[in-house]
Design a protein around this nucleic acid. Structure first.
Length: 618
DNA sequence: GCTCGCCCTG
DNA sequence: CAGGGCGAGC
């Protein structure tokens, strides 16, 4: 992976608005023709280097521009490593062979991410039930603290990944893994720091002796003293940052309604309508995402998730950030009402679910119980999937997929990475010449937090384990082509659904219900024709004007936004004739008289168009 | 024993 | 549209 291949992921311009689809990410990444693929983003994004030099920098000095370029390259390098997790690599790079992948440092990262992932228990069904049984109480603050610890760990980890990315012994996980052992990490952050210190020192020797060239390639210090400096500064700053964040969290807690009772918090969240599940009918609706329950109007929360205005969404979009999803899909707006600042992200994470977001990250070592009561007020965790949630599968956790890198690229803007003035890490070569412009800790924190946010989104917007109203709509339209779809057909045409026995049965049941309605209408029409005195079957036709068709169309294509294939009319006519003939012949006295008809109709299935495999515009 | 489809019911 | 009962087919 060349450096240039990652550059497209970084967009230099700040966008004030950003849209996310309420659809599943799988739809967007795998199916949705209308959505923006990573390939699109490649085209979309202009050269960051070019823009870096003509960007918001007030300096005209070319050396400063070069400086900025180099800095950008450094940041991008970090992003690349961060984005190198397996789930974020599906876009556009799937053509690369596994062998190739394994030869890259990204592959090592992917490998480790996978390994870590395997440790995470699956939070599957029944989490809602568990949720209702748990007490939030004082655990809320503990959770916040834990989330901060996890944040720190991840930050450290990411840094270590960069630090180690050229180490050929990287895959020798025995030692390294110990540093990320959740059992250790979970107990004491102090333990963690000590471990890291040992780790750095140990690595330092080897790097210094063996891998200077490689380190040089990625722009990291090759001088042992600089390593030490960086190491010390990192540790110091990370500790400071965490302390600061914890302070802010508690300050926030005391000044906002964060310490409300869980019930209070639940009441203002759309998730409540779902998790309580009292009224199944209401769950059919797309939950309305009003502004998150920030009850302090003065609070400058910059990540505001709300439903987009009903009117032209594109108006708030700038040319370089396309709204990647169709308008009619539930889309959500990340309204950067104030310049996005990492502290805002942090606040958002902390206030609205840092623990869950981080816990949702495959790279996080500590499993998070998403069934905790706090999880109900986590827009990040839920914003996408809740929009299409169905009554039957409310507690499923969507799987991660590939949106992360793309989204990351879309969001990594100068605003997200302000030139901050925390301690700067100067990366020096042996002659103490600056190889790369300073990258601040804040830059890294921004990146990590952004990545967390995005990955968390990513985790929740893709493969769904439950069937959504969109799936139902799609199924109904498929019925125009196939009345008796096989399980394989269903699996083929619902690639964004994680199939299990229950889901399969539900889909089959849907089609069974469709047939039931279909046959009822047919029988009704046939009997009506007989009552009306029609004596010749040929006098019975099914056209788009006929009553029968209207009824069917109303049922399967309520929005009337799908052109029903002519073939369906033919099949309907044949069915009608079958019923007419059977009834005319008095076969309806036999309790199983319809079975013969079913036998005929099931042979009239047609192939479902390929578009149904890939399109999610339903 | 399991899956699937139909039927009935809510 | 979902749940449950029932029977057929594998």
């Amino acid at each position: 992976l060349s450096d240039s291949s990652i550059l497209y992921r970084v967009k230099p311009k700040v966008k004030s608005h950003f849209y996310l689809s309420g659809s599943t990410g799988a739809e967007s990444s795998q199916e949705d023709q209308c959505s923006v693929s990573s390939k699109d983003s490649t085209v979309e994004a202009s050269s960051p280097i070019g823009q870096a030099s003509t960007g918001p920098s007030p300096e005209g000095d070319s050396s400063i521009s070069d400086h900025l370029q180099a800095k950008r390259a450094r940041v991008e390098n970090i992003i690349r490593v961060m984005a190198g997790s397996p789930n974020s690599r599906q876009h556009g790079e799937s053509e690369r062979s596994d062998t190739d992948l394994r030869d890259t440092r990204e592959a090592r990262e992917a490998y480790r991410e996978n390994k870590r992932k395997q440790r995470l228990p699956q939070h599957q069904e029944h989490s809602n039930a568990a949720q209702s049984n748990r007490k939030a109480g004082n655990s809320s603050r503990d959770k916040q603290l834990q989330s901060m610890q996890r944040l720190l760990r991840q930050l450290q980890e990411k840094f270590l990944q960069v630090y180690n990315q050229e180490d050929p012994d990287y895959d020798n996980q025995d030692k390294t893994e110990a540093y990320f052992d959740p059992d250790i990490l979970g107990k004491s952050s102090e333990t963690r720091y000590i471990s890291n210190e040992d780790y750095f020192e140990d690595k330092d020797i080897r790097i210094d002796n063996e891998y200077r060239d490689q380190m040089k390639v990625v722009g990291f210090p090759i001088n042992r003293r600089d390593n030490q400096n960086l190491q010390d500064a990192l540790k110091q700053e990370l500790s400071k940052a965490v302390n600061d964040c914890v302070d802010r969290v508690f300050k926030k807690i005391s000044s906002t309604g964060l310490d409300r009772s869980p019930q209070q918090r639940m009441c203002s969240t759309p998730e409540l309508q779902i998790s309580r599940g009292g009224n199944r009918k209401s769950q059919q609706h797309t939950p309305t995402f009003d502004q998150p329950q920030s009850e302090d109007p003065t609070e400058a929360l910059s990540l505001v998730i709300r439903k987009p205005p009903a009117v032209p969404l594109m108006t708030s979009l700038t040319p370089t950030v396309k709204r990647p999803y169709p308008v009619h899909q539930a889309a959500f707006q990340l309204n950067y009402s104030t310049p996005l600042h990492e502290s805002h992200i942090l606040e958002h994470l902390l206030k609205y679910g840092g623990h869950s977001n981080l816990g949702a990250l495959p790279c996080m070592p500590t499993p998070i119980d998403q069934a905790s009561p706090d999880s109900v007020d986590l827009p990040w965790d839920t914003l996408a999937m809740r929009s299409k949630v169905t009554s039957a599968h409310l507690s499923h956790h969507p799987r991660s997929s590939s949106l992360g890198a793309h989204m990351l690229g879309s969001l990594l803007t100068p605003t997200l990475m302000p030139s901050c003035s925390l301690v700067k890490f100067n990366f020096l070569d042996r002659g103490n010449t600056i190889l790369q412009p300073p990258i601040t800790l804040r830059d890294i924190v921004c990146l990590c937090l952004t990545f967390n946010c995005l990955f968390s989104l990513n985790v929740n917007v893709n493969i769904q384990e439950g069937l959504t109203p969109s799936h139902l709509k799609k199924a109904k339209l498929m019925f125009f082509y196939t009345r008796y779809p096989s399980s394989n057909v269903l699996k083929t045409f619902f690639p964004d659904v994680k199939f299990n026995r229950c889901i399969t049965s539900q889909l089959i049941k849907w089609f069974s219900n469709f047939r039931e309605f279909y046959y009822i209408q047919m029988e009704k029409s046939a009997r009506q024709a007989i009552v009306d005195g029609i004596s010749d079957v040929k006098d019975m036709t099914v056209s788009r004007d006929s009553e029968l068709f209207r009824a069917l169309n109303m049922h399967y294509n309520k929005a009337n936004d799908f052109h029903v294939p002519d073939r369906f009319l033919e099949v309907a006519e044949i069915t009608l004739h079958e019923f007419y003939n059977a009834i005319s012949a008095g076969k309806d006295s036999d309790p199983s008289w319809k079975k013969a008809i079913y036998k005929v109709i099931c042979k009239l299935d047609n192939d479902v168009p390929e578009e149904f495999k890939t399109s999610s515009c339903f």
